[in-house]
């Protein structure tokens, strides 16, 4: 299969970049197409950075909440049983 070919400067095709940008745009929560161009791409990357940071914050918050919930769970609670059944299946 094709390995990651090192691409020199100016060798990346415009179509390939546009395809990757469209793929990235589809993942953002509020994807509104505002034409193509340098300013639009800069805005897209800015939104991507904000989205990744918000997801990082959610992982932090949910880790805290899972830790709190774990403190209230003993080995006989339904949650622990659910975990064991999922791991067993």
């Amino acid at each position: 299969m094709s390995s990651r070919r090192p691409s020199s400067r100016g060798n990346i095709s415009e179509d390939e970049i546009n395809e990757l940008i469209s793929k990235l745009q589809a993942l953002l929560p509020s994807s509104r197409r505002r034409g193509s161009g340098q300013a639009s791409t800069t805005k897209l990357l800015k939104e991507t950075c904000s989205y990744i940071k918000s997801l990082h914050r959610e992982v932090d918050d949910l880790s805290d909440r899972l830790s709190d919930l774990m403190a209230t769970m003993d080995h006989n609670s339904p949650g622990a049983e659910i975990i064991r059944s999922i791991l067993r299946s």
Binding site: I12, E16, I52, V59
Partner: peptide, 23 residues
Amino acid sequence: EYCSLLDETADYVLHLRAQVQLM
């Protein structure tokens, strides 16, 4: 590189979002 960065970012966002949904 810029091209690889876009590709990796899309894959990272996809999995990060799935992890948040799981948690």
